[in-house]
Amino acid sequence: MDDLIFILAITLKSSIPVLLASLGEIITERSGILNLGVEGMMLVGALAGFVVGQQSGSLLLGFGGAMAAGMLLALVHAFFCIHLRASQVISGLAVTILATGLSSFLGRPFIGRVGIHLGSLPVGPLAEVPLVGPVLAQQNWLCLAALALVPLTAWALAGSWPGLSIRAVGEDPEAADAAGVPVAPIRYACTLFGGLLAGLGGAYLSLVYTPGWKEGMTGGQGWIAIAMVIFATWRPGRALLGALLFGGLTALQFYFQATGAELVPAWILRLLPYLLTVGILFLVTVLKRTRFGAAPAALGQPFFRG
């Protein structure tokens, strides 16, 4: 029982950064912009969150700083993709490279420093509920907010006016434009929203998950988030599933480490998230041709009126 609680709690806890980043990326890609800068935005978000939090002593400012930093990078990407009609692949990669360098360059003085961090949720009497209580007690409000964001983004895409515009812009910007939908502003907004959540996901790492700043502390989670968008076939609900899968593998790694039971060598466990991502991507790509939804039709293509 304790083992199960341990694994479940860490699963949930570890899945949040990937969940946040992939929810953001879903919105971005639904509007037709491919953002490969997520990894960089998470890194800069992690650094900004830590630094602002440490300097100001305020968690709120920390998270706010992280979101602002992510959005700033997203603005760069959006400008290059939307106004300069650049290749979205190269622009995204460039943003990741730039952000990796920036976080390392500016973050050097903060390595090993102690900052602030977000504590666990006061669950009160809920703690007595078997399984749910103890698992919940190890979470925090950001985790709950991230979970709440899943139905919220799903509703926004399916049942709201802005969601209709976003879907139209990502599927056929020319038709959307002809119908009077402001294509460029919507794409900007969606890209910025993606950057905001990526930054927040990064700050979760540096302010909640493993408080402190470490170079390259995202360890590819931004890339995994992008893969999870494909796994989720651009739907928020399935993104939660993908993120939990990733969190589960991380939890198993911790579990084996903690119990010393080397059922599977540690290095294999470290490989699994990456291999699994490839495997999932493969399955989804092969299966989607028959049953699942497809990518937004205009994903990755610049739009401009003739």
Binding site: W161, P162, L164, S165, A168, A179, G180, V181
Partner: peptide, 10 residues
């Protein structure tokens, strides 16, 4: 499409 300016719920 394009008619929902300023409105949220659809």
């Amino acid at each position: 499409l394009g008619l929902g300016r300023g409105r949220l719920r659809l």
